[in-house]
């Protein structure tokens, strides 16, 4: 599938994308966070003291402000905040991208099948989607967490994905409905193509750009849900994440005493979600020529 045509399409889209100041800013912020996430893999090189979870500076027993050995200071047990911030970036990417990816795959496949099949298949799938869509995902997560204790990070990813596919599948379904009556789909039916072939060969390439667009918005949502969950104390206790850092600040009573500890994770959460949102907005413009200014075609 990967051939010249797709490369050309990507290059063309990229050119429009990068002309957009919003897209440019989004990519810029994202790059910074990506470097941070990658840098977290280098932490062990600096010795056990900089392990974000277990690395304790033997000389420090309380939260200290930024210094040369600890650029952003330490938390109340002497762990390096900068190391935690880097680790948090990695976790945010993992949680955001993987749960967005799962929910998009689920939503796209269900949307295409539902739209193409129609009838009772459509009815069952879409009623299910409606039910899940009206459920408040954070509340559900909190109830589940209070029932089963704290979650493993992958379980959180999975639950967010399950909660978040319906909106995608609705959009993909309506796109599929309009594609379904297009003559090239009918031509393929007349030629004898099976439904599976029509869905994956003919409909999917036409809805994929839209699915990717929704993925960027889903990343934003997933990061926020994970942060909220962690802050409320239902996160994965074995994982450092930005939400978890906020939870620690609050729990140890440093909310108003240690701005160097509170502000970095808070700002990171806002900036990263903003970056993905801006990415989505700029992609929107690539996909919808009506949003484009003249002369950019």
């Amino acid at each position: 599938m990967l051939n010249n045509h797709y490369v050309q399409r990507f290059v063309k889209g990229w050119r429009i994308f990068i002309k957009n100041p919003v897209g440019k800013a989004g990519i810029g912020i994202l790059t910074v966070f990506m470097i941070m996430a990658l840098a977290s893999f280098c932490l062990p090189l600096f010795g056990p003291m900089y392990d974000p979870m277990t690395g304790i500076d033997p000389n420090i027993k309380i939260s200290t402000p930024p210094s040369l050995t600890h650029w952003l200071g330490t938390d109340n047990v002497g762990r390096d905040i900068f190391a935690q911030l880097l680790e948090g970036a990695k976790v945010a990417f993992i949680v955001g991208l993987s749960s967005a990816f799962f929910s998009i795959v689920l939503g796209t496949v269900i949307g295409m099948v539902s739209g193409y099949a129609g009838g009772w298949v459509d009815a069952i799938l879409m009623r299910t989607a409606d039910i899940i869509m009206v459920m408040p995902s954070l509340v559900i997560l909190l109830i589940l967490a209070s029932l089963f204790g704290q979650f493993n990070i992958w379980l959180i990813v999975f639950i967010i994905a399950i909660m978040r596919w319906p909106a995608v599948s609705r959009v993909i379904r309506s796109q599929t409905l309009s594609l379904k009556t297009r003559p090239f789909i009918e031509a393929s039916r007349v030629a004898g193509a099976s439904s599976v072939r029509i869905i994956f060969r003919h409909i999917m390439p036409n809805v994929l750009p839209l699915a990717f667009l929704y993925m960027t918005f889903r990343v934003t949502a997933a990061i926020l849900v994970e942060a909220a969950l962690s802050f409320l104390g239902f996160g994965d206790p074995s994982q450092v994440s930005w939400g978890m850092m906020l939870q620690w600040v609050w729990k140890s009573g440093h909310m108003f005493q240690a701005p160097y500890w509170l502000i970095p994770p808070g700002i990171s959460i806002s900036l990263l979600t903003l970056a993905f949102y801006m990415l989505g907005r700029a992609m929107d413009e690539v996909l919808d020529p009506r949003l484009r200014k003249e002369g950019q075609s």
């Binding site: 045509h5 297009r182 003559p183 090239f184 009918e186 031509a187 393929s188 060969r201 003919h202 390439p205 036409n206």
Partner: peptide, 12 residues
């Protein structure tokens, strides 16, 4: 089909 702009899948 009638419309040659609609009857070919643009991605194939």
């Amino acid at each position: 089909f009638q419309d040659p702009y609609q009857s070919l899948n643009p991605h194939l």
